[in-house]
Design a binder for these strands. Sequence first.
RNA 1: GGAGAGAUGGCAGAGUGGUCGAAUGCGGCAGACUCGAAAUCUGUUGUACGGUUUACCGUACCGGGGGUUCGAAUCCCUCUCUCUCCGCCA
Length: 425
Amino acid sequence: MIDIQLLRRNPQDVAKRLATRGPGAFDVSQFERFESTRKELQAAVQQAQASRNRIAKDIGQAKARGQDVAELMQQGEKLKSLLEQSEAQLEKLQSGFQDLLERIPNIPHESVPVGASSEDNPEQRRWGEPRKFDFAPKDHVDVGTELSGLDFETAAKIAGSRFVVMKGEVARLHRALAQFMLDVHTREHGYTETYVPYMVSGACANGVSSLSKFREDLFKIEGRDLYLIPTAEYPVTNFVRDEIIALEKLPLKYVCHSPCFRSEAGSAGKDTRGMIRNHQFDKVELVQMVHPARSYAALEELTGHAESILKRLELPYRVVTLCTGDMGFSSAKTYDIEVWLPSQNTYREISSCSNFEAFQARRMQARYRAENGKPDLVHTLNGSGLAVGRTLVAILENYQEADGSVSVPGALRGYMGGRERLTPP
RNA sequence: GGAGAGAUGGCAGAGUGGUCGAAUGCGGCAGACUCGAAAUCUGUUGUACGGUUUACCGUACCGGGGGUUCGAAUCCCUCUCUCUCCGCCA
């Protein structure tokens, strides 16, 4: 949620910065209409409440002295019906205002390039050389199927499209990847490993993004206030919900391996082949809660942590900065890491690392006790470190050989019983 | 699944219809004592919002939501969660 104080102080300025995200991000005149009615109504209601409190107190004191209170009681009664009306009015106005507020996206950081779409995302850096194949490289579906490791027909039979069944050494490689990522992040980057619920309440979902805006993307448990998590960011970020963290405890750094469930309602027909965009996939997620002054340094570090996995797996990648028009709703700044996929002859997203500043913390009331002793909102960050399914895709494609075998990256061999190569049966 | 108990400020814990935003203790902060520290003593210390702006005034908040009442932390309904006992179970 955006800072209401900032909005009140400087609506034009906020509107200007939000406009870089694209049309319709924020309507100033609607906001100002809301504000003037709200001010008037709120002042009136509070004044009436003050009189009610005064009268109630007077009655108490008069009674204690044994005086007659009939007159005062009558005054109170009159005020009560009046109050009920204006209170209801104010409540309605404020819930409408809250709804408006929750639909306003985060203000992009000043360093974020202005642009309209992913075409305008500037590349920050590249690492590794895409391999030159002396045969026509297959895509992960063909490679995995030939290894008898990926089975989309069986998955479709069980659950429909956009699911995968993994078997044998490919399933093991998938597990090895998650273990490897967890080990690197806990041992070398200082993250605490966590295991979390794969469902969260509506309130938690709303703290992380905006439920009124993203309900469609989530799988809901029928008849319960529970949603399957689309990323471990949901449960983990909510660790600090309604908490005041001691200054010296910051930064909090958590890593979590979990399945992720997404309805992919808006992406019909996109990436339908294979396991690039499935309803269920595994991800190792990095989450940090940090001091506001350190959040941009933390974003660079966190992105580096995700990159280090690709470097050790020797997978070529590049890092782009998302432009204002391509950035997610809650983010102030996002780097995407894209891995090279030979079959598509392009780089595809494998991690997204964002600084949300206080946007999530405000809604969650996630705070720390600042140097002056006062509670202040923390900044939250997260990033994939990495998407496990897509990393498996990248390995199958980049490490494939002409004979249909796939070599195991050196970093993973310890997790694969020393195995160096997966071969078709 | 059954029975019972409970949820109050950073923490512990009083408060069962009227100067209660809330005793007391711990913790935090400031001061006194001290060369300094500890101990001791004194004072102070919730959050959000609105109005005014160094001060100040007002409103809301005692697990969530609803109700009764002139007035609710306190009474009623409901939901959630925690604990204890019993049963069942990977």
